[in-house]
Computed example of a mutant assay.
Amino acid sequence: MARAALEPRADREVFTLPLAVKAEHIDANGHVNNVVYVGWLQDAGTAHWNHLFDAATRARWSWVALRHEIDYLRPLPPGSRPVARTWVGDPQGPRFARFVRIEDEQGRLCAQGVSEWCLVDAASMRPHRIPPELLSPFVKAG
């Protein structure tokens, strides 16, 4: 059973990433295969991180996906031009929940997902509590 539609909190920045439906994404049922959505969740999170942080920060820190959960609500047929909208939840030590909505050209919710990500030191790959300077860019200035 699908959960209620994910909506960003008012205090969170929402990042939008245009997605491309490629011919190889279409499965035997004539729509985007579910495995592609997992890649899109990762792509949205990575693009958001790269957008917000400079190369030095990205060289010091990295993220490891721990789990993905996706609800499929409306198929995306060939030729679709969906977008991913993503934002983060509250940090839990080294972990962040990242929320993603996949919407079609009309803004209809087609899929939504929650991923759990863990911040790691890029050199040692050891988990690290999310420091305030890595949280603040995800929060709307108020």
Rank of each mutant, 00 (worst) to 15 (best):
N29Y: 15
R81C: 06
L52S: 06
N50L: 14
D54G: 14
R101Y: 01
T46A: 09
K22P: 00
H31K: 11
R95Q: 10
P91A: 13
D27K: 00
A55Q: 14
H51F: 06
V36R: 12
H48R: 11
E69I: 06
V88K: 04
W63L: 15
R81Q: 14
W49C: 03
W63A: 01
F96P: 00
A28W: 01
N34R: 07
F99G: 00
L52T: 06
G30L: 12
P94D: 03
A59H: 11
G93S: 04
V36T: 15
F99W: 03
Q42N: 11
W61V: 05
A65T: 14
G30V: 08
V21R: 14
A44D: 02
R67K: 12
V88S: 03
P75F: 07
A47S: 08
D27Q: 00
R101N: 15
G45Q: 09
L41E: 08
T46Y: 09
L52E: 05
D27W: 00
Q106P: 00
P78S: 11
A111N: 06
F96H: 07
A97K: 10
P77R: 13
G93D: 05
E69M: 04
F99A: 05
L73C: 11
R108L: 13
V83N: 08
T46W: 15
H25C: 07
H25A: 07
N33R: 08
L19K: 09
G89S: 03
A47H: 09
I26D: 02
V83H: 13
R101Q: 15
S80C: 08
W63E: 03
V83Y: 02
W61G: 01
W87D: 03
E69R: 10
Q106F: 03
A56C: 02
V38H: 14
A55V: 12
L19S: 07
L52A: 10
D90E: 15
N50M: 13
R81V: 08
R85F: 01
A65I: 13
E105K: 07
G93V: 04
K22C: 07
P91G: 00
V88F: 05
A56F: 02
D104A: 09
D43W: 05
V38C: 14
G89V: 09
P82W: 10
A55G: 00
N33S: 14
N50Q: 13
L41Y: 10
L19H: 09
A23H: 11
D54L: 08
G39S: 14
I102K: 10
A55L: 13
A111H: 03
I26L: 08
W49E: 00
R60H: 12
A59P: 00
F96A: 00
Q112T: 08
L52Q: 12
W49D: 01
W61Q: 04
N34W: 05
N34T: 04
C110Y: 10
S62K: 07
